[in-house]
């Protein structure tokens, strides 16, 4: 099974962000082991109900990580975050990135 770490760094209104979540959806539907990490302004996409496309991705079985440091810097309260998201730090990201065979894509 192909494994991916897709990293979205731009906010929901940023160029191509929604499209990138669409890429994540497609990879999940193709059977990939996909983790979508939202970092920097990308964490705004983790605000509950802010992104229908993200709902599609989660519904298809994709994993959603949210960078806790970026979240705190931007003032988003954990209670306002999509419940299916897992808050992570860079140690978690590094561990996943080091997985043999994993492909990582930053947007």
């Amino acid at each position: 099974m192909d494994a991916y770490l897709l990293i979205e760094s731009a906010g929901p209104a940023g160029a191509g962000g929604d499209r990138f979540v669409g890429d994540a959806c497609r990879l999940v539907r193709q059977g990939g082991d996909v983790t979508l990490l939202l970092t920097q302004d990308g964490v705004l996409g983790a605000v509950a109900d802010s992104s229908p496309r993200l709902g599609d991705y989660l519904g298809a079985g994709g994993a959603l990580w949210v960078d806790a440091f970026s979240l705190r810097r931007r003032g988003v309260a954990e209670e306002d975050v999509e419940p299916r998201a897992r808050l992570v730090d860079m140690d978690d990201v590094a561990a996943r990135l080091l997985r043999p065979g994993l492909r990582a894509v930053w947007h």
Partner: peptide, 19 residues
């Protein structure tokens, strides 16, 4: 944006895992 900050954070985290 915070690209440089993120890159440095990730670099440090990778080094901490002996990468």
């Amino acid at each position: 944006d915070d690209l440089v900050t993120s890159a440095l954070r990730l670099t440090r985290a990778l080094l901490d895992q002996d990468a």
